[in-house]
Write a protein that binds this DNA or RNA. Structure first.
Length: 614
RNA sequence: GCCGACAUAGCUCAGUUGGCCAGAGCGGCUGUUUUGUAAACAGCGGGUCGUGGGUUCGAAUCCCUCUGUCGGCUCCA
């Protein structure tokens, strides 16, 4: 058994132990499923009679679990015919288990396609009907289960119950809702502690907290949920990041286009999005005509109309458009949160219209841009090649798919990307490459995406004239480097913990006057003026406070360079910048002539480095 | 949308067996001080306790509605 398998067995065993502890405390509990998840496990339970578990009960449950662990009860595997198992479930009043068993009996799997039996931790012995099922017993607790488990309840490592949340039985929103109790578990207490420390760290860097503290963005009840408002500081962040992404586009031969934010709904009836996503559109009614409009939920159909506005020759291709613009999606309110999930979504979107023989070159260029961007931001990347599976929901010629997927695989190989393939993750219109970036505390986030599209060109009748004069369909390549800029900001704020490198820092230099004397203030003004002339973001703190307090304030605002100005500086004409600790390369404070310092900072910003050049 | 928790000053938070004018720290403003690398001192403002309704002699506190936030579920072009 590998270490991985052993950890899984430990976690799954803990799910059983937790269920058995809950059953001791609430004998009438009805049990759902209890699989292993990332970092731990959960079990879905239903206490019945509308009774609810809360985190206040965790102490009792954990105590009970500890007793079971201490008793070191062996896990015994037993088998019984399915019919007998159904009787067992009936007898012990476990309707959810009964339902699962009936599925096993009928279909041989616990559920059609939407849930993976393995994830559920349940028996599924292939596609044929199941004759016998396995149970595991520890002490007085018996549960339908495929296993494997650890030998006995004493061998489960370190765990902690984390939270309880609602979850639909078998993930369907028409089913009754159960309570899902989550726990985390590791082989050793040390690993558990490390994990909990990481969570603490994540909490400290929560972009919602930092957004408030660093005055980056806000929400207003009057404007509505999921509609972030960016302050001047937050807007600098957005702008610097999009400027960078846009400069990569321009370097790769994309041309900027510009479109309105609304359209007649006809556009989406043609594109096919109306049927699929119509209920998530914000509708806008004209008071003048009977036309119904919608706020755009994506940009491709608009861009397609620009492509379609004149005849295209094979010589014109690839035609590459890009635009940073906002789309609007009426997401369900319960799904919104911070900047991670919003209803006004800004995208650095691009669409390239290619001949089939150009797809490879275009995609290679985009992969290159993605790598440059995330390399500069100090995040490592992994790519998921999202391919189709055998489902019939995919549109477009199967040969085209095969070819495109092969191309993507070759490119991933050539670009030295770390990648993996995921069947069934493709969009309905084509395969894609989704990029995941790892942040400073080891969490992975989905960011950029490159998608091939065979469907929209067809739907919109996009064409170009080939060498022999016949019409042909271009292939569309969608790409967003930052993805949703709001979501990306949430990732980047947490990645940097708000300690932005100079090129993105809303406030790059803060000047602190030692006193209020006219000579000092005029010297400060002079440095501010010079810095602004060089395009730097500089502020002066001339408040009547102690130097110590003003330094502290600059630290709290995470300003990269703080400079105290007083008699000494006025006399010598030199500054001694205080460098924010994460940027500093050495700990010695050096002095620079005003001009020399400012020019160094300008160059540092221009080169987008993550360390101080001083 | 669903389940659960929550909403008190600009921020962070006290204040529940329903009861005197609703509190603190930070931030803000004013004054004193003229300050040298993470918090000088003093004073002053600031909240119809998210909204609307209800119960009660009396509601920040109990009940309902709505709005918003958080943890999940579901969804994600």
């Amino acid at each position: 058994m590998t270490e991985q398998d052993n950890l899984r067995a430990m976690r799954h065993s803990l799910a059983h132990i937790m269920a058995s502890a809950i059953q001791r405390l609430w004998p009438d509990v009805k049990l759902g499923v209890g699989p292993v998840v990332e970092n731990g496990f959960y079990y879905d339970v239903d206490l019945g009679d509308g009774e609810q578990l809360s985190v206040d009960d965790f102490g009792r449950i954990e105590t009970e679990m500890s007793k079971i662990i201490k008793a070191n009860e062996p896990f015994e595997r037993l088998e019984m015919p399915v019919a007998e198992a159904v009787e067992w479930a009936k007898k012990y009043n476990q309707p959810y288990k009964e339902e699962l068993l009936n599925d096993l009996k009928r279909a041989g799997t616990t559920i059609a396609k939407d849930l993976d039996a393995d994830e559920l931790g349940l028996a599924a012995e292939g596609d044929s009907k199941v004759e016998t099922v396995s149970f595991y017993r520890n002490g007085d607790f018996t549960d339908l289960c495929r296993g494997p488990h650890v030998e006995s309840t004493g061998k489960v490592g370190a765990f902690k119950l984390m939270r309880v949340a609602g979850a639909y039985w078998r993930g369907k929103d028409t089913n009754p809702q159960m309570q899902r109790v989550y726990g985390v578990a590791f082989e050793t207490p040390k690993e558990l502690r490390q994990y909990l420390t990481m969570l603490e760290e994540a909490k400290k860097r929560d972009h919602r907290k930092l957004g408030q503290e660093l005055d980056l963005f806000t929400f207003s009840e009057l404007v509505g949920s999921g509609l972030p408002l960016f302050t001047p500081r937050g807007t600098v962040l957005r702008q610097e990041l999009t400027n960078f992404a846009e400069s990569l586009r321009i370097g790769s031969g994309f041309e900027r286009v510009s479109i309105p934010h609304i359209t007649k709904t006809e556009l989406y009836k043609v594109s096919g999005h109306w049927d699929k996503f119509g209920d998530e559109l914000f509708l806008v009614q004209s008071q003048e005509t009977s036309d119904q409009f919608a706020l755009k939920p994506m940009n491709c159909p608009h861009h397609n109309q620009i492509y379609a506005s004149r005849p295209r020759s094979y010589r014109d291709l690839p035609i590459k458009y890009f635009e940073t613009t906002t789309v609007y999606r009426d997401e369900k309110t319960g799904e919104l949160g911070g900047l991670s999930r919003v209803r006004s979504i800004s995208q650095d979107d691009s669409h390239a219209y290619c001949r089939p023989d150009q797809v490879e070159g275009v995609v290679a260029g985009l992969i290159d841009d993605v790598q440059t961007l995330y390399g500069t931001l100090g995040m490592s990347l992994r790519a998921r090649l999202s391919f189709r599976d055998s489902d019939d929901k995919y549109l477009g010629e199967p040969e085209l798919w095969e070819e495109a997927q092969a191309t993507i695989r070759t490119l991933a190989e050539k670009s030295k990307l770390e990648y993996f393939e995921a069947e069934g993750e493709a969009a309905f219109y084509g395969p894609k490459i989704d990029f995941m970036a790892t942040d400073a505390i080891g969490r992975e986030h989905q960011v950029a995406t490159v998608q091939l599209d065979f469907v929209q060109p067809e739907r919109f009748g996009l064409e170009y004239t080939t060498e022999d004069g016949s019409p042909s369909r271009p292939v569309m390549v969608h790409c967003a480097l930052l993805g949703s800029i709001e979501r990306f900001l949430s990732v980047y704020i947490e990645h940097t913990a708000g300690r932005f490198p100079v090129w993105v820092a809303p406030e790059q230099i803060r000047l602190i006057s030692v006193n209020q004397e006219a000579e000092t203030l005029s010297f400060v003004d002079d440095v501010v003026r010079q810095a602004k002339e060089l395009g730097l973001r500089v502020t002066a703190d001339n408040n009547n406070e102690s130097v110590g307090k003003k330094i502290r304030s600059a630290e709290i605002w995470k300003v990269p360079y703080t400079i105290v100005l007083g008699e000494k500086e006025i006399a010598g004409g030199e500054l001694t910048p205080r460098i924010r600790s994460d940027l500093a390369v050495s700990s010695d404070a050096k002095s620079y002539a005003v001009n020399e310092f400012l020019k160094t900072v300008v160059n540092e910003a221009k080169s987008r480095v993550n360390k101080s050049s001083l």
